Simulated scan of single mutants.
Amino acid sequence: MVSSDPPGFELPLRLFLGFRTLVDELHAELGRQGHPDLRPMHGFVMQAIGTRGTTAAELGRRLGVSKQAAGKTIDTLEGLGYVERGTDPGDARRKIVRLSERGVDSLVRSARIFDDLRARWAATIGEDRLHALEADLRTLTPPDYFPLDVPGWFGGYQ
């Protein structure tokens, strides 16, 4: 008997395609709102930097990449105006990278755009179905776990 179920490999691909669709639409809108140089990986990096800043070594650990790879990305984001380097007020030997005003602006805009994209998905499939999908994904995934190590997990980093 032939199963009418889709093959197992389709599930992760569809989940990834949903993620990719949202992120591509986010970046298209960010570009229209004044952030055309941001790339998907930059969002992971800025989230890993956080509101208090971090060192290149710690950023590398959070992203699952080398300190050198993290440093190259910091250089790129600094050149684009999204981060600033400085010293740690508690330890002048430590060099800290922090989000600039432009970096914070991009994250605030991203949050709003994601809300708009979610609303579009709800309008397409219905709020009840979207709530059910989100609840099911919460059931199937670890609670309060949002890894930022996608660069290292995928096995490479630019």
Rank of each mutant, 00 (worst) to 15 (best):
K95S: 12
L133M: 12
E78H: 12
D91T: 09
T55K: 07
M46N: 00
D5W: 05
I49P: 04
P6H: 07
P143R: 11
S3Q: 10
E84Y: 02
L17W: 07
D105H: 04
K67W: 05
T124Q: 13
G60K: 01
T73E: 11
R62F: 03
G31D: 06
T73R: 12
Y145L: 10
K72T: 05
G156I: 07
A119R: 15
H131M: 00
E10H: 09
I96A: 05
G71Y: 06
G156F: 13
H42C: 00
D128K: 15
I49N: 02
E101T: 10
L117G: 08
R109T: 10
R85M: 03
M41V: 15
G31P: 04
V150Y: 01
F9V: 13
F44N: 00
H42D: 15
K67Q: 15
L15C: 09
L99T: 02
G71L: 10
L130W: 02
S110I: 03
G71R: 04
K72Y: 12
G43F: 01
R98G: 00
S4G: 05
I49V: 12
G90T: 13
S3I: 02
R109H: 07
Y145Q: 06
D91W: 11
V104E: 11
R102G: 00
I113V: 15
H27P: 06
P147D: 03
R102C: 03
I49G: 04
L137Y: 07
R138L: 13
G156W: 13
G53Y: 07
A28H: 13
G43K: 03
A122P: 05
L63P: 03
R93N: 14
P147N: 09
G86A: 12
F44K: 02
E58T: 11
R94F: 04
R94Q: 14
L59G: 06
I113E: 05
G126P: 09
R129N: 08
A28C: 04
D5Q: 15
P36V: 09
H35F: 14
F16P: 02
P12L: 12
V23M: 09
